[in-house]
């Protein structure tokens, strides 16, 4: 009995330490960065890190929810492109309409993903690989394959708008993360998301409908992809039908480095947030140090593998 007790204490201690691992890692990385490259801590540079991470960041927030249910959404990159094309096309008529239409469109795409997933029992990788292509084509057809000019100045100014000393984009991202965190932690839907990802059979026996939960999660992922797309459009100042390529993998990277399990049931958005900044900081410091930009993908690849391997080792 004592043995069990001691094991239990050790386990909880280990998991508490595990909770501190990411913040500590980020702190260490920041400290090292500040030490080797003084420009790192300047306001201008940090602003760039934040603006550069915002689009992926908001996508990563939605992706975390999808991963927690044990699924994946590969279509969010295409959804970003769709948003930017819709905004650029409709903005000359009415900016408000354009923004609303874009977000509604991606939310509907997400909803469709969710409904198809639960109706057909297709693996989400395959399903969203399909919708990724379809949504990309929608963007290309609307824009006739060309960049769409027509994003008004007032909208592109969003990127450079500052709230105090923090870019508006950063504030928006933090708000999205806070809302998602709140949803996941304090609402019944949020807890059902974890329950479904943890064991869908147990969740079913507890009266939770995996169908409804998954549809809701994909719709939210679509909604967040729309919001991310708005900031993306503001940042690139155009409607880019071939934009946002590979953004889904960037979002997955942040979530995975933040400790989200690929098998579902585990993952926290605040950790994804930290994961996002670990990636952003590593990229930034390599830049500042004058390392070839082509080393970045190599470093990120190694970072992903190390993070996941360490995590699997720990949980064993």
């Amino acid at each position: 009995m004592f043995q069990v007790q001691r094991d239990l204490e050790r386990k909880t201690a280990a998991s508490r330490l595990g909770n501190l691992f990411l913040p500590l890692a980020l702190a260490v990385i920041i400290a090292v960065c500040a030490f080797i490259s003084p420009p790192f801590l300047t306001q201008e540079n940090l602003k760039n890190v934040i603006i550069g991470s915002a689009t992926f960041g908001i996508l990563a927030c939605g992706m975390t929810m999808v991963l927690v249910t044990g699924e994946v959404d590969l279509s969010v990159g295409s959804q970003v492109a769709l948003t930017s094309v819709i905004v650029a096309t409709l903005a000359p008529k009415s900016l408000a309409l354009a923004v609303v239409a874009a977000v509604v469109a991606t939310t509907l795409v997400g909803l469709a993903n969710g409904i198809l997933l639960t109706k057909t029992a297709m693996p989400s990788f395959v399903l969203t690989l399909g919708t990724m292509g379809i949504v990309r084509s929608m963007a290309l057809v609307i824009a006739d394959g060309q960049p769409v000019y027509g994003v008004p100045q007032s909208f592109t100014a969003l990127t450079s708008t500052m709230v105090g000393k923090i870019p508006l984009v950063g504030v928006a991202m933090v708000v999205m993360y806070a809302l998602t965190w709140f949803l996941l932690r304090y609402t019944s839907l949020g807890r059902s998301i974890y329950a479904v990802g943890s064991s869908s059979e147990s969740a079913r026996l507890s009266g939770i409908s995996a169908r409804q939960v998954k549809i809701a999660v994909y719709a939210m992922s679509g909604f967040l992809a729309g919001i991310a797309g708005l900031f993306y459009t503001s940042y690139v100042t155009l409607g880019l039908p071939d934009g946002g390529v590979d953004y889904e993998t960037q979002a997955i990277t942040a979530a995975i480095i933040g400790g989200t399990s690929f098998f579902g049931g585990e993952g926290e958005v605040h950790n994804t947030f930290l994961g996002l900044f670990i990636v952003g900081t590593v990229k930034n410091i390599l830049n500042l140090m004058g390392v070839s930009p082509f080393v970045q993908p190599v470093a990120i690849g190694i970072l992903i593998i190390t993070a996941v391997v360490l995590r699997t080792r720990k949980s064993e």
Binding site: S198, S199, S202
Partner: peptide, 8 residues
């Protein structure tokens, strides 16, 4: 077969 949610 325990119908628990292991990660919660």
């Amino acid at each position: 077969e325990l119908d628990l949610l292991p990660t919660l």
